[in-house]
Amino acid sequence: MDRQAYESYLKTTHRLGRLVSVVTLVLLVGAPFAIGLILGTAPDLGAVARGFLSVGLVWTISSVVEFLVYTPMLGAGGSYLAFITGNLINMKIPCAVNAKELTGAKSGTAENEVISTLSIATSSLVTILVLALGVALMIPLQPVLESPVLAPAFDNVVPALFGAMAWKYYRKSPILALIPLGVMTVLFTLVPSLTGSTSMMIIPSGAIAIGLSYLAYRRGNRGADRR
């Protein structure tokens, strides 16, 4: 492996990643002010502050967790791109993990860095393209996309995604999968209102799965040491 080239690549990735993150930040926060100028008004900063206190704090905590959990999966380039382009849980993360599985890349390696960046960049470009085409064709497409026949299909994209992913991951460790699934089912059954916070429940469910996986890993290592 050409380590020098890879180190130089990573250095430039970080420099570029930081630069585009800051530019995107300025563009996204600046856009409402620019739109306000066109509309002859400006954002009400007091209302923004009050709104932030009511919902923003939850999303801030969620962002910290997402950063800590997903950055190791995605590597440097992939995570800069993923946090800029969004749609992490419903698309970017499963997409990158799928690409990683298909190519056999291991977390924390140069191969994972490359595969993950290729995957996130491609996925983002596809979304941008589909949305741009969709917006351009919005008027003729509207009846098809909003047709009541197709409505249940698009209402169930997330269950379809997680069903497919369940087969992929549960078959690797069915026993490990049964415990978090059982705990989550009991929780959602006893407290049905939790359904509105399913994304937050990923944290305890993930913690249970990681804890069990660590125990199995330690047991495996001890067994190997004894042999």
């Binding site: 959990v69 190791p72 999966m73 849980i89 499963p94 993990v97 977390s107 997330v158 269950p159 997680f162 069903g163 992913m165 369940a166 991951y169 549960y170 690797k172 460790s173 490990l176 999968a177 978090p180 699934l181 705990v183 989550m184 089912t185 009991v186 929780l187 959602f188 059954t189 049905p192 939790l194 359904t195 399913t198 994304s199 429940m201 990923i202 469910s205 993930g206 913690a207 249970i208 799965a209 990681i210 069990l212 996986s213």
Partner: peptide, 18 residues
């Protein structure tokens, strides 16, 4: 990472079952 994914899938499937 695989375990985290199992946890994520379990949260969603658990919500459907619940």
């Amino acid at each position: 990472m695989s375990a985290m994914f199992i946890g994520m899938v379990s949260a969603y499937l658990g919500s459907y079952l619940g």
